[in-house]
Amino acid sequence: MTRESSPDAGPPTRAADLRSAAEWLAGHDLGDAQPTPLLAGRLAVRRRARLATHVVLAALILVSALVTALSGFQPYRPLPLLALTASMAGLLLAQSLLDRWVRRVDQRAGATLSRRATHLVQPGWRAVLGRPYAVFAVATSAGAVVLAGSALAVPDPAVRQPAVVLLIGLLGVTAIIAVQLRHLLGHPVVAEDEESLTADVIMRVEDARDLNLPAVQWALPVVLLFGTAPGWWRAAAIAYLILSLVTGVALHARTPSSATTARRAMGVR
């Protein structure tokens, strides 16, 4: 562990955030550590960003379902396609802005440290995310893209038009996740001692796992195409959803916790 100098000044932190940080530490086997304003601020912005992501995704699903139900995607009517394209672009922009918000809070928190603790080896994707989660993320993304691509083979414009929007959106989400994961693995550690270093790696693990939760891949194919696609496509969409949900639950139950994964990444037993 090495130390680096940095200016010292901390942003104000609410008492509720400190209490939440204390509960987070206790839940990750770090009950002896003190909840600092730095940690409380980082955890608070992550909670708010996750909540905002859920709200944005729910709004996108509602808008998509409403547009699809009202328009039926009749041929030669570009307005529904434009509305869904704008909704998808809004989702991608919101995800990018939320990720940027979390990164900026981390950067400001790091600038307040009078000393900085670093690990000898920067944890890579295998240590932070893990092969099972990586395989699951690739499989669910590929499955959603295959579903959208298969709908393009249907000659009905009412199916093909939303399938184009869906395919573009899925590819955009995949690209954003890849960029976010790259930033997550590469950004400097924000910690000043061994305990806060462990907390930093735990947050990396949790952020990586949240990034690979395929909420968009699960929701949008059903919302955009289920009412207009042929029966074989609907059966494939249901099978994809059930299989990926069962796999995700089993993966969460069988893989080590974020705290255990972080300690292994740091070489701590």
Rank of each mutant, 00 (worst) to 15 (best):
M1K: 03
S5W: 00
P12C: 01
D17C: 06
D17A: 06
A21V: 11
H28G: 09
D29N: 13
Q34L: 11
Q34K: 04
P35F: 11
P35M: 02
L38V: 14
V45G: 05
L57H: 13
S64K: 01
V67S: 07
F73C: 07
P75C: 07
P78E: 03
M88P: 06
Q95A: 07
D99Q: 14
W101I: 07
D106V: 09
G110H: 11
T112E: 07
T118F: 07
Q122E: 13
R131Y: 09
P132W: 10
S141R: 15
G143L: 04
V145H: 00
L147E: 11
A148Y: 13
L152K: 08
V154G: 02
P155Q: 05
P157C: 08
V159D: 10
R160Q: 12
P162S: 04
A163R: 12
V164I: 14
V165F: 03
V173M: 05
V173N: 05
V173H: 00
T174M: 04
Q180T: 14
R182T: 15
H183C: 08
G186N: 11
H187L: 12
A191C: 03
E192S: 08
E194D: 14
E195R: 03
L197F: 03
T198L: 05
D200Y: 09
R209V: 03
P214H: 01
A219K: 08
A219G: 03
L220A: 11
P221N: 00
V222H: 01
V223H: 02
A229W: 12
W233A: 09
I238E: 00
L241S: 05
A250R: 14
A262F: 14
A262M: 13
R264A: 08
M266I: 13
V268R: 00
